[in-house]
């Protein structure tokens, strides 16, 4: 197994001509996409357009059918590549939080640090506490996920990903499963992350977030990227009919 170091000057995420089939159903039809280091790219589009599939291909939770995916210059589809090591540098936040229900919050944040980063217990706990404080949940380290609200669980999930000290973060509709009054806390945490310079790819229905925080906005429909550009431009002056139709429904 080759431990490939991130290439200097390479884009954080670079996707070239990505195709993905489920059986005979083509879900991604040749997608070219990139995120530069320090950038926040938001992906919007109707349900079933392939947003999650694209995002999940980036850390190979989905197997691409063809095309190339480079993460910090490393081709993650290369059979020689240490996939676990690459994944550990890519934080991921799911719509359904996916915290480990049988572990306390602190354990959720430490288990991969210990195992994958080989950190000592003391160091793992210190980093975990720092990140819990960052998401405003320093007092919840001994709680179990079932005893937290959805918004708290999602913030713990973000802290868990951050504890690996990743180079970038992927978010798949992080606020879609939340009650409306809990969305704000999670978005605030993500905003802070963006301000601190984190590289982020965010699939979202939160147009306000995309407009204010995003450096780039990508609109997908039917497995292709229909339109992309500066969020303010795309949201106020969409050029394509499909983008206009979609935005008129959600705005």
């Amino acid at each position: 197994m080759t431990t490939v170091e991130p290439e200097r000057g390479a884009r954080a995420i670079e996707v070239r001509d990505l195709h993905k089939y489920y059986g005979s159903h083509e879900v991604l039809k040749g997608v070219d996409f990139h995120v530069d280091a320090g950038q926040v790219v938001c992906v919007i589009g109707p349900s079933g357009s392939g947003k999650s599939t694209l995002l999940r291909c980036v850390n190979r939770l989905e197997e691409p059918t063809s095309g190339r995916i480079l993460v910090e210059g490393i081709d993650i589809c290369d059979p020689e590549v240490d996939l676990a090591a690459v994944r550990s540098r890519i934080g991921m936040v799911f719509q359904q939080f996916n915290l480990f229900p049988h572990m306390s919050v602190l354990k959720n944040l430490c288990v991969a640090q210990r195992r994958v980063r080989k950190r000592s217990q003391d160091e793992a706990v210190r980093i975990a506490r720092d990140n819990l404080a960052k998401v405003g949940l320093a007092d919840k380290e001994n709680a179990y996920p079932a005893h937290l609200s959805g918004g708290q669980q999602q913030r713990v999930a973000i802290a868990r990903a951050l504890s690996m000290e990743p180079d970038m973060m992927l978010f798949d509709e992080p606020t879609s499963a939340l009650d409306p009054e809990l969305v704000g806390d999670v978005l605030a945490v993500m905003r802070t992350l963006a301000t601190d310079g984190m590289t982020m790819m965010v699939v979202t229905h939160e147009m306000g977030f995309a407009r204010e925080v995003g450096d780039n906005l990508v609109f997908m429909d039917g497995g292709v990227i229909v339109e992309e550009g500066d969020p303010v431009d795309v949201l106020s002056h969409p050029r394509h009919a499909r983008t206009q139709a979609f935005l008129s429904k959600v705005l």
Partner: peptide, 13 residues
């Protein structure tokens, strides 16, 4: 749930 394995894998486990 399938998401449990995915979450662990995404952490590099």
């Amino acid at each position: 749930p399938k998401g449990q394995r995915e979450a662990a894998q995404s952490l590099g486990m």
